[in-house]
Amino acid sequence: MTLLEFARGPGLQWALWIFLFGVLWRVVGAMYLLGTKDLSKFRSKHYVRDGLRAVLTRSAPAEAFEKKIRFQHLTGYAWHLALFISVLFFAPHILFFESVLGFGWPHLPNTVILVTAAIATATLIALLIRRATHPVQRLISNADDYISVLAVLMPLVSGILAFAHVGARYETLLAIHLLTVEFMLVWYPFSKLMHTFMTIPSRYQTGTFFGHRGVKA
């Protein structure tokens, strides 16, 4: 079995299983912790409206705070958008998703993907530098913060190298790219990358908490 065959076969399968089981375990496990019922008399009982409002409005900072968090806000958007475009609209990726899901969708030109991948890489590096230098982030950061950045940075860099055929044979570069993706999948459920699945519930419950008290959160 070649390195590429391993990466495409059992490596990918195991990584996906660990990812799926780990994510499910952590999400269900966290939510399974029972809470006590709030007995106070609520000012508002529009749970869904209050919760959904927070889910939506937290995607943009409140005007009062915007100036202070502009850098993180903009780089956050740049990073996530560039990443999603690179992952979801690159032709070879779509072929892979089609083989798994049974359907595909239109792709973007390779040059566009190259630009978005470069933007994602650059913003991630900028955020990494900020984490290592900003006093608050430096104080609160742990191994998870740095390893998680590396876990998503490696597939990006290896993907760009494979796309450009730079540094080794294409098959080797592709195998490395797949292995870095698999590392990210395995790392995912144990890391802060879990925020992907937790953000909406967290925003929702805070929206309802403050909504009960008549405050738009």
């Binding site: 496990g29 006590t36 802060k192 519930p201």
Partner: peptide, 26 residues
């Protein structure tokens, strides 16, 4: 005091540190 809501909150934190910018003491 740790229940499902708090667990979700704790698992969601990405250590961005933005909360510091709202704190008058910071």
């Amino acid at each position: 005091k740790l229940d499902g809501r708090k667990a979700v909150d704790l698992d969601t934190c990405i250590h961005c540190g933005m909360c510091a910018e709202a704190c008058p003491f910071y």
